[in-house]
Design a protein around this nucleic acid. Sequence first.
DNA 1: CTGAAAGCGCTTACAG
DNA 2: CTGAAAGCGCTTACAG
Lengths: 334, 334
Amino acid sequence: MTIKDIAKLSGYGVGTVSRVLNNHPDVSDKARDKILAVIEASNFQPNSNARHLKRQTVSSLAIIVKGNQNMLFLDILEKIQMLLSEHGEPAEVSYIDEDSNEVECALALCRERNPKGIFFLGANLNYFTDAFKNIEVPCIVLTNSVSSLDYDNLSSFYTDDEDASYRLCSYLAEHGHKHFGVIGGSLAVNQIASSRYKGCIKGFKENNILFDEDKMYIPCRFSMEDGYQATLKLLDNTPDVTAIIALSDTIATGAIRAICDRGKRVPDDISVVGFDGISLSNYCVPRLTTIRQDTDAMAIKSVELMLLQTHYPGSARNDSVPYELLERESVKAI
Amino acid sequence: MTIKDIAKLSGYGVGTVSRVLNNHPDVSDKARDKILAVIEASNFQPNSNARHLKRQTVSSLAIIVKGNQNMLFLDILEKIQMLLSEHGEPAEVSYIDEDSNEVECALALCRERNPKGIFFLGANLNYFTDAFKNIEVPCIVLTNSVSSLDYDNLSSFYTDDEDASYRLCSYLAEHGHKHFGVIGGSLAVNQIASSRYKGCIKGFKENNILFDEDKMYIPCRFSMEDGYQATLKLLDNTPDVTAIIALSDTIATGAIRAICDRGKRVPDDISVVGFDGISLSNYCVPRLTTIRQDTDAMAIKSVELMLLQTHYPGSARNDSVPYELLERESVKAI
DNA sequence: CTGAAAGCGCTTACAG
DNA sequence: CTGAAAGCGCTTACAG
């Protein structure tokens, strides 16, 4: 069933059929009604390949998500998709590993799909430096900042990770903690982990806390299992630790389990804080003290900007979104 | 940059360029080398809309996931994508709400994308009954069975939900429990929930357990928050409950939290079992006794069958995949 | 308001 | 082995 069949069936030409399909005004009511009726009856749908080939443009937005099991990104993704669908804008989502090159992925997408805009959920700036210049559609990075890059079509809405983890440190220091451990993220390849880690280091310095990076920082991927193993290692390295900063809630979940398995209790023996504020952090036992990233705000702002920029390309924006320290049950004053 | 430019640049015709692009054998080495060099130098990528329009077929597979935050499906999705990419097969994934109509979604996909095969992660058979006849590509449903349907191009690999939840019941009964609650899923719209529930009912009957469906079964969506609220309600309805069957691990997580908030302990006061065996179930406190669905096997089998059937359409298969009862820490004998 | 026609970038018989 | 040409299903000036 093609546009030709509809033309034949309705007694009009393909041009007119195409016009009603695309809501052009210059069609008589009579023709429109007739053609619509035929389309309805035959359940016709225009071929999108032909349409896009002709139009030399594609209808949809793309979303690249770094990390398949990243609950924070999933949360944001869901919200973005909901907002987008309210505007009748479909989006294609691609998942890549947390260590993969998202710019390469975007480049491939541009060639194959020609999206009119791209959301990046998670980004490593190293990948952007050179390669991004080949991407021309509006792009928005979420949860970390790209303000150090200077591309007109690359914006970001982010949590000030460094500031937030600094706050976490201070909070724990105020609660009397002196012996810290930090787990999570590979500093080399993970943008987000390294700024969070930087905030921790700053916090340690300002609070005169001794921190031996080799023994007290254990890098790991963003998963429960990795958080679990890293914590076991940390506990071996530094048995006197009283406060653990996990660089994400998922990692914190593994940490709490590891502490239990070593026969200690959270927060009575060891306090744990997370980062992200995903749903799980409010249902685990004990509830996790963490940084809540404002995923609603990030989703709303990024969708608004994207919709605007796909119609009126403008200059880049880099706005931080306020976070919140959620004081819950996993920290104890000592 | 189009195939015409490449033709001009290389001194050959578009036909020959197209042939090397598609790895046809009937091209001289000389022509191939020359053309490949030009393609390389100009960074040319064929336009996929034109290609697909011409071929009347699309290269990729589609995956429809019911429920954005469903960790089990995410786990399977990740595995399927990995296996697919080993074979150089890209896949497009679409998320829909756990209550949405996946067949409608598939139909839209077929019109717009023309995928060569579709994986359904989660399926409600009601939606398939009539509408599926309009889908002609090979399709595979995961985690529930479609054997009651009779379509040649619709297969499934599944966990025997009814049997597994029956097993859960028996396990709890063997541990001395008599007062049960069941939470999760809307029986009307959710295929998976209703077969799990059926298994529970069977278990109750065989073990002579009194079960008042109105008071002891609380339906809810597959989220922690909903599991939490449902459990609170259950606890109000039936204060003497000693065992709660949550129809998924996510729901169970909410349940455990709710029990704690009511000042009771798991498993000392109330035993809780889940369903799925997602990563979280092994890291929460206490570790969850649950049914492990074999996501590895389901991913492998479904990818193998899909790859086979996209080349050699065959008849449908409906195989159950063995599950496993994971006895962990959330059940106590009384 | 409408139709006939060109053309988007490819692939693939067909002829040579 | 290679080129010229038709055609995939649409959209959009152009002419009327």
